[in-house]
Every structure is written in structure tokens, then in C-alpha cells.
Deep mutational scan, measured.
Amino acid sequence: SEHYTFDGEEQAIRFMRDMEAKNLKYELQIHNGKYIIQVD
């Protein structure tokens, strides 16, 4: 699995939509205002 970190919500949402379009599962965590997305 890989981790991707985003500072902004818009970037994170765009990335998650992209993952959904590719049928990839992901998990979102928010730490200290950063959006951390783990992709299986």
C-alpha cells in the first residue's frame, strides 16, 4: 500500500475521486490538518 499526503481538502477530494474512478480502495485519515490517503 502507498500513502499520499495532501495539505488541502480540495486536492484530497480530487485524488479520492480519481481513485474511485479507477476502482481502487483507499482510506482517509486526517492528522494535524493534513489529509493522508492510504491506497491498497
Score class of each variant (00 low, 15 high):
residue 33 G to M: 03
residue 9 E to A: 10
residue 18 D to M: 12
residue 35 Y to R: 00
residue 33 G to T: 03
residue 33 G to Y: 03
residue 36 I to L: 08
residue 25 K to S: 10
residue 3 H to E: 12
residue 20 E to A: 09
residue 30 I to F: 09
residue 26 Y to T: 09
residue 37 I to A: 02
residue 6 F to S: 01
residue 8 G to N: 15
residue 7 D to N: 07
residue 12 A to K: 00
residue 5 T to V: 14
residue 35 Y to M: 02
residue 25 K to V: 09
residue 6 F to E: 01
residue 10 E to W: 07
residue 22 K to A: 11
residue 39 V to A: 04
residue 32 N to D: 12
residue 9 E to Y: 14
residue 37 I to L: 06
residue 9 E to I: 14
residue 13 I to L: 13
residue 15 F to W: 04
residue 23 N to G: 15
residue 4 Y to L: 05
residue 7 D to Y: 10
residue 24 L to N: 04
residue 4 Y to C: 07
residue 7 D to K: 04
residue 2 E to W: 15
residue 36 I to P: 00
residue 31 H to D: 09
residue 1 S to L: 13
residue 29 Q to Y: 14
residue 38 Q to F: 15
residue 6 F to K: 00
residue 33 G to A: 03
residue 14 R to F: 06
residue 26 Y to W: 07
residue 5 T to K: 06
residue 37 I to K: 00
residue 37 I to S: 00
residue 14 R to S: 12
residue 38 Q to S: 14
residue 28 L to R: 01
residue 3 H to Q: 13
residue 28 L to N: 00
residue 7 D to V: 07
residue 23 N to E: 07
residue 13 I to D: 09
residue 6 F to Y: 02
residue 35 Y to A: 00
residue 39 V to R: 02
residue 2 E to A: 13
residue 11 Q to D: 15
residue 16 M to Y: 02
residue 9 E to W: 15
residue 1 S to A: 12
residue 16 M to P: 01
residue 21 A to Q: 10
residue 5 T to H: 09
residue 14 R to K: 13
residue 33 G to S: 04
residue 40 D to A: 12
residue 33 G to L: 02
residue 2 E to D: 11
residue 16 M to W: 03
residue 22 K to G: 05
residue 9 E to R: 09
residue 12 A to R: 01
residue 13 I to V: 10
residue 1 S to I: 14
residue 9 E to F: 12
residue 30 I to Q: 05
residue 28 L to P: 00
residue 23 N to I: 02
residue 32 N to T: 03
residue 17 R to C: 12
residue 19 M to Y: 03
residue 16 M to S: 02
residue 6 F to L: 03
residue 20 E to D: 13
residue 21 A to V: 07
residue 24 L to E: 05
residue 30 I to N: 03
residue 1 S to Q: 12
residue 1 S to H: 12
residue 2 E to H: 14
residue 15 F to G: 01
residue 21 A to S: 10
residue 27 E to H: 13
residue 33 G to D: 06
residue 37 I to Y: 02
residue 32 N to H: 08
residue 11 Q to E: 15
residue 35 Y to P: 01
residue 26 Y to D: 00
residue 34 K to T: 08
residue 38 Q to L: 14
residue 7 D to W: 09
residue 1 S to Y: 13
residue 1 S to C: 10
residue 13 I to K: 10
residue 30 I to D: 01
residue 18 D to G: 04
residue 34 K to H: 09
residue 24 L to V: 12
residue 13 I to Y: 11
residue 25 K to E: 06
residue 11 Q to W: 06
residue 11 Q to C: 07
residue 23 N to P: 01
residue 6 F to R: 00
residue 3 H to I: 15
residue 29 Q to W: 13
residue 17 R to Y: 09
residue 34 K to E: 04
residue 6 F to M: 02
residue 20 E to H: 05
residue 38 Q to N: 10
residue 20 E to N: 06
residue 12 A to V: 04
residue 29 Q to T: 14
residue 27 E to I: 13
residue 27 E to A: 11
residue 35 Y to F: 10
residue 9 E to V: 11
residue 9 E to G: 03
residue 37 I to M: 02
residue 23 N to Q: 10
residue 27 E to S: 14
residue 8 G to R: 13
residue 32 N to W: 04
residue 10 E to P: 05
residue 19 M to E: 03
residue 30 I to W: 05
residue 39 V to K: 03
residue 25 K to D: 05
residue 19 M to C: 15
residue 28 L to M: 10
residue 30 I to A: 03
residue 14 R to M: 12
residue 32 N to E: 11
residue 35 Y to G: 00
residue 37 I to W: 00
residue 21 A to D: 10
residue 4 Y to D: 01
residue 8 G to S: 15
residue 1 S to M: 13
residue 12 A to L: 05
residue 11 Q to T: 07
residue 35 Y to L: 03
residue 15 F to S: 01
residue 40 D to P: 12
residue 34 K to G: 03
residue 3 H to N: 10
residue 1 S to D: 08
residue 15 F to A: 05
residue 34 K to W: 08
residue 31 H to P: 00
residue 3 H to A: 12
residue 19 M to N: 04
residue 10 E to D: 11
residue 3 H to V: 15
residue 5 T to P: 02
residue 8 G to L: 15
residue 26 Y to A: 11
residue 22 K to N: 09
residue 11 Q to I: 05
residue 7 D to C: 09
residue 17 R to K: 14
residue 27 E to L: 12
residue 2 E to Q: 14
residue 28 L to Q: 02
residue 35 Y to H: 03
residue 22 K to D: 04
residue 23 N to R: 06
residue 18 D to W: 13
residue 18 D to L: 12
residue 40 D to K: 14
residue 24 L to W: 08
residue 19 M to K: 01
residue 30 I to G: 01
residue 8 G to P: 01
residue 4 Y to S: 02
residue 37 I to N: 00
residue 34 K to I: 11
residue 16 M to I: 12
residue 10 E to Y: 06
residue 18 D to H: 08
residue 12 A to E: 00
residue 20 E to T: 05
residue 39 V to T: 05
residue 13 I to H: 10
residue 40 D to R: 11
residue 27 E to F: 13
residue 19 M to I: 11
residue 12 A to F: 05
residue 27 E to D: 10
residue 1 S to R: 13
residue 6 F to D: 01
residue 9 E to H: 09
residue 38 Q to P: 01
residue 30 I to S: 03
residue 27 E to Q: 12
residue 15 F to Y: 03
residue 16 M to F: 02
residue 31 H to I: 15
residue 12 A to S: 02
residue 33 G to H: 05
residue 24 L to R: 10
residue 13 I to W: 07
residue 25 K to Y: 09
residue 22 K to T: 05
residue 25 K to Q: 08
residue 3 H to S: 14
residue 19 M to L: 15
residue 28 L to I: 09
residue 33 G to E: 04
residue 14 R to D: 13
residue 36 I to M: 07
residue 28 L to A: 04
residue 27 E to Y: 12
residue 6 F to N: 00
residue 29 Q to R: 13
residue 4 Y to M: 04
residue 15 F to M: 04
residue 36 I to W: 07
residue 4 Y to K: 03
residue 3 H to C: 13
residue 35 Y to C: 02
residue 5 T to D: 04
residue 3 H to K: 13
residue 1 S to T: 13
residue 6 F to H: 00
residue 27 E to K: 13
residue 29 Q to D: 05
residue 12 A to Q: 00
residue 19 M to A: 09
residue 8 G to A: 14
residue 31 H to V: 15
